[in-house]
Design a protein around this nucleic acid. Structure first.
Lengths: 206, 206
DNA sequence: ATCGGACATATTGTTGACAATATTGGCGCT
DNA sequence: AGCGCCAATATTGTCAACAATATGTCCGAT
């Protein structure tokens, strides 16, 4: 067997790669994703590509017109996004509440790892990485709840708010503020004060 | 070539069929769905089957373990369902609000068509059909908003509440009450009173 | 010159065969 | 007899070729 990796789902890896590319804004809205081109790019057959694309389509990252291909989705109208934001808040606070009392050193190690990378991204004004890490941070909270249902729903919500993550960093004159904001979240978590933590997390979700 | 239909996505039809089968309770929780068996059953290759299964997997109808196949999902824990119910309320009322002023005779024709079928199902104590029509009713409201984002999110939510639809009909001694409840919803809609309609719809979502 | 229709091209949809992996039953060992 | 290992089987994962459909272009008629 290949010692490279247990290869647990290569379509998932492709989906993750494309997802971060879209989130980071490396792909224009409305630009098409051709199966053959992606297949050659990833050195893989068209099957896994189709699966990855279908997954992103369900999440709302791309839109698929039958017999016509998939394109990077355009952001939903503001009315929809304003509907989704509170749903996202409900989900993330629910997740946090579910495991807050079980937090251990290992959890904080992982979060500090994200923060470390985020600090570098912010210091170098690497907007794409900053956006990715912002989402990775919140996703790690949802994943920590170890409820697959939660993650699935969260992904379908966040995919439709990705432009807020992208634009959100414009509103800060200093990119470092993004970093400090997340540091403060983890700092509150470490105090063990649940209510304060929930409030800080909620407040960070625009 | 079959002149029956323009064949707009045969994997979608398969997914719909399997979804209603699961919702209606015709498949045991945890029972496996084998690709080859389904392929022969639907007289189709394994490709479309895989796509349908992946869609249902993302919705939460089935769970897919890599290299191991998919099984009918077990209902999420109550804590998750209690989280999802208010999200579903928010979504459906948002949908209703978005198109309420544009309602026309055609809309009510379609709803009355559903109610007619639901009446028959309730009269004959056909629980499976009753559940299907209950969901079709609410789905028609979300679809009427003509926002694909809304429908995608709604599906991921409702799939995880399917046991509530199934059990919900036990709590009524008389199955006809389910029918009357939906009739009253449409009746309120026809009065044109938005606030009253929103409240009735919300109240119907357990 | 512009509009409509048919042809050529490109892309997606589908299929069957092959490879990789997990499950199941039997065998030997303790 | 019980436990662990190993082969046989069944199932999923992947690929390349084929069919169906949409897109874009060219030509001719008005």
């Amino acid at each position: 067997m290949d010692a490279t990796k247990p290869d647990q789902g290569q379509s998932e890896q492709i989906a993750n790669r494309l997802r971060t590319d879209i989130i980071a804004g490396r792909m224009e809205e409305g630009s098409p994703l051709r199966e053959i081109a992606l297949a050659k790019q990833f050195k893989v057959g068209r099957g896994p590509i189709r699966e990855a694309l279908q997954r992103l389509s369900h999440e709302g990252m791309v839109v698929a017109k039958p017999n016509c291909g998939v394109r990077v989705a355009t952001s939903p109208p503001n009315s929809i996004q304003e509907l989704i934001v509170p749903l996202r808040r409900t989900l993330e606070t629910f997740a946090l509440r579910s495991f807050f009392q079980d937090l251990n050193a290992n959890d904080f190690d992982q979060w500090h790892s994200i923060l470390k990378r985020m600090r570098i991204a912010c210091e170098t004004s690497d907007y794409a990485s900053t956006v990715e890490l912002d989402i990775e941070f919140h996703q790690s909270i949802v994943e920590r709840a170890a409820q697959n249902d939660l993650l699935s729903i969260w992904l379908t919500l966040v995919s439709r708010l990705r432009n807020q993550f992208q634009n959100g960093h414009r509103k800060y004159d200093d990119p470092m503020k993004i970093y400090y904001e997340h540091v403060s979240i983890i700092t509150i978590f470490q105090t063990g004060d649940l209510e304060q933590s929930l409030q800080t997390l909620e407040w960070s979700i625009t």
